[in-house]
């Protein structure tokens, strides 16, 4: 099955009078990672929110396709991507397992997929999300993002708060995603945003690097 492809050009976004993105271009294909770097406030998170369909850019084009289809409209992009970001929270009063069960129902994914991801990330399914440490919450975000086997992962500071074992576990999941998006048989893609370029597993193919000016 032909895989995922994302290309964006001339993306601009301002908040009031403050321009945050000024004509950003990039492209990533199946099996690749696009690395976005830039100082704090340079627009990395805004770029990822635009790519996810959570923010409408003021100018520019986003061409996100899957399986040789037409470019996905923002409403579809939102449902297809996997998203890990500091501003993403799950329901604190529900357990980690209940959170993934809920989203599995919304995403029409089997419940066992959530349990499998929790086990791989060494997360207790019966602990309330509000009682998880910051590193465990970050791993829960990863489990949430990978739950529906997305073709495209949008990762905003995805290794934040993770210990060595956690970083290795999510690194392994990222490598699997790029190899065959969660067992779908087709390679996925990822856009990874961090202030400083991360040291990535040498197995991961870096498509390009985009440096955002502050």
């Amino acid at each position: 099955m032909p895989p995922v492809h994302l290309r964006f050009s001339g993306l601009a976004r301002r908040f009031g009078r403050l321009p945050v993105l000024r004509g950003v271009d990039g492209e990533v294909g199946a099996g690749q990672v696009l690395v976005v770097t830039g100082v704090n406030g340079s627009g990395k998170s805004t770029l990822l929110r635009c790519l996810a369909g959570l923010l409408a850019p003021d100018a520019g084009e986003i061409d996100h396709r899957e399986d040789e289809g037409e470019p996905l409209p923002p409403a579809e992009r939102r449902l297809r991507v996997g998203y890990v970001a500091p501003d993403l929270a799950l329901y604190e009063e529900l357990t980690a397992g209940e959170n993934l069960d809920f989203f599995a129902r919304l995403r029409r994914v089997e419940r066992e997929r959530g349990r499998e991801l929790l086990a791989r990330l060494d997360l207790p399914p019966d602990r309330a999300a509000g009682a998880l440490s910051s590193g465990m919450r970050q791993k829960l975000r990863w489990a949430w993002a990978l739950l529906h086997r997305p073709g495209l992962l949008l990762l905003d500071e995805p290794f934040q708060n993770l210990d060595a074992a956690g970083a290795a576990a999510v690194g392994e999941l990222l490598a699997e995603h790029l190899g065959a998006a969660g067992g779908t048989g087709r390679p996925g893609a990822a856009v990874l945003a961090q202030p400083i370029a991360p040291t990535l597993d040498p197995r991961l193919a870096v498509a390009d690097r985009v440096e955002l000016a502050g």
Binding site: A52, L54, A75, R78, L79, V81, Y83, A85, D87, L88, A89, L90, Y91, E92, F103, L106, R107, W144, H148
Partner: peptide, 12 residues
Amino acid sequence: THTATALRLAAR
């Protein structure tokens, strides 16, 4: 509680 983002990305 910032759970709206997850809901926006998962449900119609």
